[in-house]
Design a protein around this nucleic acid. Structure first.
Lengths: 294, 294
DNA sequence: AAGTGGTCTAGACCACCCC
DNA sequence: GGGTGGTCTAGACCACTTA
C-alpha cells in the first residue's frame, strides 16, 4: 500500500505521519491539514506556493544531494515516478528537464534516466555564469571591498551612447572602483549605467554595496552579458592602482549586460591583475539530436 | 536555459527541411482567414522528421530573422498561434521556451509575448558558450590551420590522472598544436584525451582536423566544460612559437570537458597571444524566483 | 471583467534499446 | 516483445495585467 520512493529511501514518500524530510524538502506542505485517508497524495501538495514541477525537481535533487541516489544509478521509469509523486508525466518531465539543465541527470532514449555525477557540490563550484567578484570572495573566504574613484552622472559620449543604445548626451551614471580582497587591490572596475534606469544610483555607497544587487533591486531583470576577454599589458595610469609594474599582464573583461527585452543596461570594463585573479565558469551544451542520417 | 556549444561544432546541425512557405502562416496574423478556407492548417506538417515544436520554433525564428516581426512587437496570443500553426498549446509553449532560451523572445504574465531585440544577427555573433577557434576564424574570414608539435599516446602522469579522473599510467593521447590564422601564430593548444575513449586518435591528421569533431564522431557526448581564464607573462619556451617577446601577456584558457555522465573526456590548455586574440561569449542568467517573503 | 500567460492532467502514439 | 523515453493533444483551472 505504501508507495516507495526509489530504492533506499522508502520512508520519505507515502508515509503520512513521519514523512518530515520530504515535507521540508518540498516546502511548507502542511501535513496537519491532510485529508487523512489519502497517504500517497501527501507527497507533493498544492498547499505550497511552488509549482508542482519545481517541488518534484527539489525532491529528486535532495535525494541526489543526500546521497540516496549515487551517480550512475538508474531512476525508476517515468510512469512509476509519476505514481509515486502523484503528478502527471508532463509535469514530471518538466522537473526532469530542469535537473538535466543543472547537470544532475541525463536520459537515454530506450534505456532510462541516470544520475550524472555532477550537479551537487561540483555544480556549486563551477557556476554556469561568470563568477562575480563578490561570489569569488565568498568562496575564498576573503573580505571584498571597494575604493570608489568616481560615482557621478555625466552626459554620455558618442562611444558610450553607441555601446548602450542610447542618445549621446543622455545622463549616464559612472562608477569607477578599485576592488580589493582583504585590502589587496585585485581589479579596476569601470562601469556605466543610464541614470534613468536606476535614478537612485548616486545615493548608494558603493564602498560596500554591489552594483549588480542595486540594479536588481531597482527591478531590472539582467539576463544576458555579452562579453569579451583579453590579455593586455597594464598601462602607466592603471598600474599604481593595482600595485603593479607597468607592462605586467592584466585580464580585461568587457561586458554589456542586457535585460530580458534585449535592452543594454550596464557597460562594464574590469581590469584584473593577472597574477591575482582567475575567471571561473562552466560552459554547457544542450543535448542535440542532429543525426546526419537516420 | 539557458545555453550551448563550446566546440567547433557550429555547422553540424542538419537542416533538412527548408520550409520557407509556411512562414507566412504566422506573420500575417490575418484574422479574416478564419476557419473558412483552412489555409493555416498547411503550416506545419508531420511529413518532416523534425519534431513539431522544433518546426514551430523555426517558423517563428525565421519570421524574426526576416524582419517581419520587429523587436518590441507583441506576438499573437498563444491560443491564436496554436490555431495558426495547427499545434497544441503545450507544443507551442515548448517552441516558445526554446526561443526564450536563445534570447529571441520574452513573456510577461498577463501581457503577452514580445520580440526581444536579440536573437538574430546578434545571437550569432555572441554565442552562449566560448567561441571556438574555428568559429572565430570563420567569423573573421581567415583561414585556420594547425602546426602539430606532438600527437602521441603516453602513460598519464599523476597530475593528468587526477585531472581526468583516471588511473596514473593509463594511456593518454597528447595533442600539442600551434594554431594559426592566415599563417600568423595565434595560440598554443595543449590537449590530452584518454586513449580508450577514442582509439582512432593517433591516426588522425590534426593539421586540419578538429579535435572536437573527432571526439563527437567517436560518439562522445560533450556536455560541459569547466573553465578557468587568466592572464600571464609568456615564458621563454612558449614565446618563439607565438613569435612574442618573453614577458608579453598571454591569455590562458584551461578547460576540462565532461560528457553527459560527468566523466572527464578532455583536458585542454590554450595559450593565446594577448595582442592577437580575444575570447567572446555571452553569459546568460536564469530568471530567479528568490523572493524573501511571499 | 476580459484577455493572456503559467500550470497541470490523462491518455495516446511513436522511436529506441535490450532480451 | 516488452520496457522506456520522446512527442503530442484537448481541455481545464489559476494568476497576473489591463481596462
Amino acid at each position: 500500500m505504501v508507495h516507495k520512493w526509489f530504492s533506499a529511501t522508502g520512508e520519505v514518500i507515502g508515509v503520512r505521519s513521519p514523512a518530515p524530510s520530504i515535507a521540508t524538502a518540498v516546502g511548507t506542505a502542511d501535513p496537519s491539514s491532510g485529508p487523512g485517508t489519502e497517504p500517497a497524495a501527501a507527497a507533493l501538495l498544492t498547499a505550497s506556493p511552488e509549482p508542482l514541477w519545481i517541488q518534484a525537481s527539489n525532491v529528486i535533487r535532495s535525494e541526489i544531494d543526500k546521497g540516496a541516489l549515487q551517480p550512475g544509478t538508474r531512476l525508476p521509469p517515468e510512469r512509476e515516478l509519476c505514481a509515486q509523486l502523484n503528478i502527471s508525466r508532463v509535469t514530471l518531465r518538466k522537473a526532469l528537464a530542469k535537473l538535466v539543465e543543472e547537470g544532475a541527470l541525463s536520459a537515454t532514449h530506450g534505456r532510462g534516466w541516470y544520475i550524472s555525477g555532477a550537479g551537487t557540490a561540483t555544480e556549486r563550484e563551477w557556476p554556469h555564469t561568470l563568477e562575480s567578484f563578490t561570489e569569488t570572495a565568498r568562496r575564498m573566504r576573503l573580505v571584498p571591498h571597494s575604493r570608489v574613484l568616481r560615482a557621478a552622472a555625466q552626459p554620455a559620449s558618442l562611444d558610450e551612447a553607441e555601446l548602450l543604445s542610447i542618445a549621446p548626451g543622455t545622463p549616464l551614471f559612472h562608477l569607477d572602483r578599485v576592488r580589493l580582497l582583504d585590502d589587496v587591490p585585485i581589479a579596476i572596475d569601470i562601469s556605466a549605467v543610464p541614470l534613468a534606469m536606476a535614478p537612485d544610483l548616486p545615493a548608494v555607497d558603493f564602498e560596500t554595496a554591489s552594483l549588480y544587487q542595486v540594479l536588481l533591486d531597482a527591478g531590472l531583470n539582467l539576463v544576458r552579458a555579452d562579453s569579451t576577454i583579453e590579455s593586455r599589458e597594464v598601462d602607466p595610469v592603471d598600474a599604481p592602482y593595482l600595485d603593479l609594474d607597468v607592462g605586467k599582464p592584466i585580464l580585461l573583461l568587457h561586458q554589456v549586460v542586457l535585460d530580458e527585452s534585449g535592452r543594454p543596461v550596464l557597460s562594464s570594463l574590469v581590469k584584473y591583475s593577472g597574477a591575482r585573479y582567475r575567471l571561473r565558469t562552466s560552459f554547457t551544451r544542450q543535448p542535440r539530436f542532429d543525426r546526419t542520417a537516420p
